[in-house]
Design a protein around this nucleic acid. Structure first.
Lengths: 121, 121
DNA sequence: CCATCATATGCCCGTATCGGCATATGTAGC
DNA sequence: GCTACATATGCCGATACGGGCATATGATGG
């Protein structure tokens, strides 16, 4: 089977650093391919290929203007990532550490009703 | 070169759905490998391999208890993802749509000072 | 119509993936 | 020590990636 296609979903598409760079560059607004080539200092074919992936997962939209193509960000597919990752916020935010400790203690008590080390608070 | 290693960073590690499932299962608390095997209905070697990847990027911690290994979530590496994705929140949140439209209009005016279609808003 | 600019595709390579299966390592208990 | 359990590792095949480079497609202007 191998790894899931990069076009499988936003998670895979965005795992590639260059693709994130492209999105970052597009955050300011519409840009042509050549614009991006200059901004990211990458060979043009690569940029086009990365844009293809981003387009297939719906992260960018294209608009044709004369002979150039203007790419535009569409971050909606990122919401899924944000939502999923957001569920773990407690696990890095100091703000939730105390709560987690309490929950862990409660779980321990469930498992061992006789209570073990009753480390304070 | 090929795709970046799955162990390159949290972005790549988490792009794999099964690994997300594992993290989800660990969100409740520590679990042994066999626990996860049962919960996810996956062959044990696969679970072990996925756990290896998650460990290498620091998303899980292990604790040895007798002959079993208890894995525990450590979501800190997810913060980078959350931070990056968070910068795009405006692009999916309705809350920011109006602001974006205004910004886009401003940009258009910059580009075409003679004004084009002045579709009201 | 022909040359030029802008972008997309195609092909080759080396690499690392994930899945499946067998097996190695390691611990527990008799 | 040997057997059973728990987990990790190794090897295989298939796949598709990302980079490099050449080239096709497409639109513009003379």
């Amino acid at each position: 089977m191998a790894r899931a296609a990069t076009t499988a979903d936003a998670f895979n598409a965005v795992a590639e650093p260059r693709r994130r760079q492209i999105l970052d560059a597009l955050a300011t607004g519409e840009r042509s391919v050549n614009d991006l080539v200059a901004a990211l200092d990458l060979p043009q074919p690569q940029v086009s290929k990365h844009l293809r992936v981003l387009r297939e997962v719906g992260l960018v939209l294209v608009r044709e203007e004369g002979r150039r193509r203007l790419y535009r960000l569409d971050g909606r597919p990122l919401k899924a990532i944000h939502d999923w990752v957001g569920r773990y916020e407690r696990s890095w935010s100091q703000r939730f550490d105390r709560l987690d400790a309490v929950l862990a203690d409660l779980k321990d008590e469930e498992a061992e009703p006789d209570g073990g080390t009753d480390d304070d608070e």
